[in-house]
Design a protein around this nucleic acid. Structure first.
Lengths: 338, 338
DNA sequence: CTGAAAGCGCTAACAT
DNA sequence: ATGTTAGCGCTTTCAG
């Protein structure tokens, strides 16, 4: 296999010039550059990353660490990040936090080993010492939708979204509004945004002069299956029944719609349902939702990191950026009894 | 940051012995090993992968290349592969083929760069020259559910599954059986297994003495949305109507069930539906299915690769392994008109 | 079983 | 703008 030496020789320059021409760092005369590039192509030269990393301290790899992979938001985000990185010629190393017992290893081993130029941390919630470990790595980090104070981050305005969704229902004339939200913090499947969404929901109700009903504020794990189960219990319970339901994820909302239908309730006539996410699954059942765009979030995080690396600046400003959402009205919400 | 030199010094041995103790390769006296390990721990030593890779030629990284990430099968598989790799101390580099134009780069640049010890290729279909490129890399490869001749692979017995599903329907008394299968090979969203499933379906019908109806063998893109759309068209068409539907993915099957319900048909009374996958989405609508286990497939592929690397053998036997499935009967299938 | 020493292939001063 | 050269931090012959 051809090395940079061969390329340099063939182009009639030194390895230093060849390196400069190949990497684009430092000045090389156009003529020399062309010859080097041509030689490289002719020889089918491919740089050794190991050697390059060792010598330069850069690895052209960024790490992505997330609690799940096989869930819509995460898979979508990963997709965006991958695309963006590949087109920049960077590699993506994937670390999963899902399996407890790996947390420590991810932080201690994987992130450290001088292998990563930067990291994207998704929906992470760390304790004090874990946070310290992460910051100690002293690599550029962008955090998305988690709880990692002190690093630049991308977040939805959870509070506003929840409020908006609830107000949509209120504006339609609903007063009896339930909420399918996230699990509490002790749960393995807890997501950091859950509490803000819950608060936004409550606030909107109170502002409209309706007192939240505690039994109508239900915890679920963001999946269709649990949404179905919890919604069915809610709707089948004797006594007062909500006329509308705000779900913190589209998956739960879809589950809720299926549960309502199975019980013989019409959506939206007997029950209006609104979700959050923009999961394509919602299209099929006409789900009204507040859409977010995780693939874009992944791309944006990567772009921030890449820009920062290119700039050569010291540390990144720990700004929190609010990402955009879009209200998508379909057929799962209407005035009560429509 | 502590290097191997510091560790060696502190343990009172040479860097060679330290390296051997740390990596487990070569013989080291228990006493020396313990001292090295202790020193490493005390100093918080973390090996430099770049240096290690450069010196040893091994990168402790395996590449996973797939056309999609944000689809159930792929995300699930990736999850399994990630878990297995992390516990072995390996890194996972992710490459997506989704965006055309990246194919060439993935093959030419990313896979080559001496960065990967092995690769898992998922649902890939390559042309002659691409295949050659992949084989030229001369790294251990395991292929899953794709069309890459000449390398060890994991596959479902597509033909048998499709036949089994169709026979389930026939056994229940159905004769009017439609099929929602994959797109044809010219499509971007074509999956390699589609044609085998289609064949298995046709074969089962013919063996039962029923001639397949061409208009009932429909192409879709494996998603809920397209399943819904195509099933609705099928069921709403005037004239003869099928009493059962075999879908090549659970997502399409779920879409089909929703379409049937929306048209006022009862499932399974008016239409029996069976899928393939074991997607949890199916549980909520009581979908009968032939389940596969992509996470296990991912783990198994990784284990094969890791075992091979550990064995130090030359090249892997290009065996094709058939992975296991499980018939899950729920409430979406019954005798016609039940 | 252990140590000395020669690189792995590239980059980055530094000098020209 | 280009060449010279000293490493980057580790692994691995090869001796002992």
């Amino acid at each position: 296999m051809a090395g940079i030496k061969d390329v340099a020789e063939r182009a009639g320059v030194s390895t230093a010039t060849a390196s400069r021409a190949l990497s684009g760092r430092g000045h090389v005369s156009p003529a020399a550059r062309d010859r080097v590039l041509a030689a490289a192509k002719e020889l089918g030269y491919v740089m050794s990353y190991a050697a390059s990393s060792l010598a330069s301290g850069r690895s052209r790899t960024i790490g992505v660490i997330m609690p799940y992979i096989n869930r819509w938001f995460f898979a979508e985000l990963l997709d965006g990040a991958t695309a963006q990185l590949m087109s920049a010629g960077y590699d993506l190393s994937l670390y999963s936090f899902e399996q407890e017992g790996q947390r420590e290893r991810v932080l201690a081993d994987f992130l450290l080993r001088k292998r990563l130029d930067a990291v994207v941390a998704v929906a992470l919630r760390l304790d004090e010492s874990e946070l310290q470990q992460l910051l100690d790595v002293d690599k550029p980090i962008v955090e998305i939708g988690g709880l990692v104070p002190g690093v630049p981050s991308l977040h939805l305005d959870e509070h506003k979204i929840a409020r908006f969704a609830t107000e949509h229902l209120i504006g339609l004339g609903h007063r009896e509004i339930a909420h399918l939200g996230g699990l509490d913090e002790t749960s393995r499947d807890y997501f950091p945004m859950s509490s803000d969404r819950r608060e936004g929901y409550r606030l909107a109700l109170r502002e409209a002069g309706v007192e939240p009903v505690p039994q109508w504020d239900i915890a679920a794990d963001y999946t269709v299956g649990d949404g179905y189960k919890k919604a069915k219990q809610l709707l089948a319970s004797p006594g007062r029944r909500p006329t509308a339901l705000f779900c913190s994820s589209d998956e739960m909302a879809v589950g809720a719609i299926l549960a309502a239908r199975d019980l013989g309730f019409r959506v939206p006539a007997d029950l209006s349902v609104i979700g959050v996410d923009g999961n394509p699954l919602g299209e099929t059942v006409g789900l009204t939702t507040v859409a977010q765009f995780p693939a874009r979030q992944g791309m944006q995080a990567v772009r921030m990191l890449l820009d920062h690396l290119a700039s050569g600046a010291g540390s990144m400003p720990a700004d929190s950026i609010t990402v955009e959402t879009q209200f998508v009205v379909r057929s799962s919400t209407s005035v009560p009894g429509a």
